[in-house]
Amino acid sequence: MSAGVLRIFPPEMVVRRPHRMIERHIAVYRRQWLIVVSGFFEPLFYLLSMRAGLGSLVGAVSVGGKQVPYDAFVAPALMAASAMNGAIFDSTGNVLHRLKYARIYDAALATPMGPADVAMGEIGWALIRGQIYAIGFLVVMAALGLTNSWWCLMALPICALIGLCFASIGFAGTTFMRGWSDMDIVNTLMMPLFLFSATFFPIAAYGSWAWVVQISPLYHGVALVRAANEGVWSAGLLGHTLFLVVLSVAALVLAARRVDTLLRK
């Protein structure tokens, strides 16, 4: 193979066995399933408090021209946020531990596994974790009568995309961390992301600051889940999807390259 071909298609960057990484995590979390489940409760508690308190004060909100009660407006956003949380939990702190301290990836890279396998496996696992939360959340929504039609099931693949996007960004970002103190940055970023992604009020409320909201991947995810839950589809949703897909792919490629530069010096 010529040097040029190798640069464009490095053989180590081929994804062959990312599921092996996931197998390892399943073995670990079989004993620690409570930790996995715990991440689901935060958005759930938000939903219950919104429904009980705020919902009665706010009244109806417009979604795609449709008037919906406030709790039905907030629930899909919280579902998107739960997918984000699941993905971020796993792709930041846990990845930092495995990358820098437990050196799990060093061990994996001594086998036929390559950097792209490691990155894809980790992101896949984080995505699965986000998806578990999303499914749980959807069940609760249905039980509370907050789902509107069978279209709400479309929210699950959408949450998978949200999970993929945040897991890739989380993993790629974590490869730049110097140590545990950098985890504070994640927490600092997650809070405004959660609050200001048109989660609790429509984007119109942001006025001239709406463009800032549109940078947030969660905003695009929320818009998609909301549309799915109401079964109101429009061409504009393609833009939201495209935004998440492009961001995911870019972050994924960056993540695999970072594993290569960090661990295969």
Partner: peptide
């Protein structure tokens, strides 16, 4: 070019 193939046949104790 054959990293994975070689690694499949070696053992590494770091």
């Amino acid at each position: 070019t054959d990293g994975p193939k070689i690694r499949a046949r070696i053992g590494v104790v770091p």
